[in-house]
């Protein structure tokens, strides 16, 4: 589904990613771990197509398409979803209005008719229950006045609504207490599907207790320095990121 080859990328002209190779297939969950500043968040932003995050070398192939040719909204319509580390507040725009516009935009992209008001309501009620979100939140402005946990839950709700093929979860556990972490992970797990891939970016192993990955990659200084299965995360937890520095030097 996602084929990243020798990816070099800069953030506002500062090189961050320095040759990433990664292959993600449908149904798989990949975890990207690494110390602060290793380029984890950059990777998800590059895939999602954020302005200022430029590919300087290498390629990202997604379902046979060269991603660099697509705008952020087109990538979203192609099924890429980014759960933001810091979800943005948009005053005056209700959650409902935004989600409806997003769904219809994607339907239009696929040549489908707009969703009916009734179907939309039904869908959003069902999905809101999944992340235990109260109805009143849906009517409030996007993320405005939400607590850290509410914002993250809102991200997962949106993911559930938009049903992406590739979900990128950028530090979804940051700022969550243990209860919120559970609700969010349960939401994510419920969305695991054979035709859906997930890339979970995280600093800590604890999220991976809840969202168990098929593969773990360790990122340091813009490169994947080690890959393995879920046990790698445990090893990393035990040995600490200093261990990575050793690996880097060795490589």
């Amino acid at each position: 589904m996602l084929e990243i080859k020798n990816l070099h990328a800069s953030v506002f002209d500062t090189p961050i990613l320095k040759g990433i190779n990664l292959s993600v297939n449908a149904g798989e969950v990949h975890a990207i771990m690494g110390p602060n500043g290793s380029g984890k968040s950059t990777l998800s932003n590059v895939i999602a197509g954020r302005d200022g995050y430029d590919i300087t070398e290498g390629s990202i192939d997604y379902l046979g398409k060269d991603l660099s040719e697509l705008e952020a909204d087109e990538r979203a319509c192609e099924g890429i979803f980014l759960a933001f580390q810091y979800p943005v507040e948009i005053p005056g725009v209700s959650n409902m209005a935004m989600l409806k516009a997003a769904i219809n935009s994607m339907r239009k992209y696929r040549g489908e008719d707009e969703i009916s008001a009734g179907d939309f309501l039904k869908l959003i009620r069902e999905k809101a229950a999944l992340v235990e979100m109260k109805q009143e939140f849906l009517k409030r402005s996007v993320n405005e006045g939400f607590s850290g946990g509410e914002k993250k839950r809102n991200e997962i709700l949106q993911m559930a609504m938009l049903e992406p093929k590739l979900a990128l979860l950028d530090e979804t556990d940051s700022g969550l207490d243990i209860d919120a972490l559970k609700i969010v992970s349960d939401g994510v797990n419920a969305l695991r599907a054979p035709d859906r891939a997930m890339v979970v970016v995280t600093h800590y192993q604890r999220l991976l207790d809840h969202i168990v990955p098929d593969y773990v990659h360790v990122l340091a200084d813009g490169k994947i320095v080690k890959s393995g299965d879920k046990s790698l995360a445990l090893e990393l937890e035990e040995k600490g990121y200093n261990w990575i520095e050793g690996l880097q030097k060795a490589s």
């Binding site: 909204d73 979203a76 005056g92 516009a101």
Partner: peptide, 30 residues
């Protein structure tokens, strides 16, 4: 217009014009 807001909406599949319109209308809501 905040770029963060624009990118957020575009990441949710809205094209630029729709995203701008949504943000501007939100700005005028009151």
């Amino acid at each position: 217009i905040s770029e963060d807001q624009l990118f957020y909406l575009m990441q949710r599949g809205l094209n630029e014009e729709a995203a701008v319109s949504m943000i501007v209308n939100g700005f005028c809501k009151e």
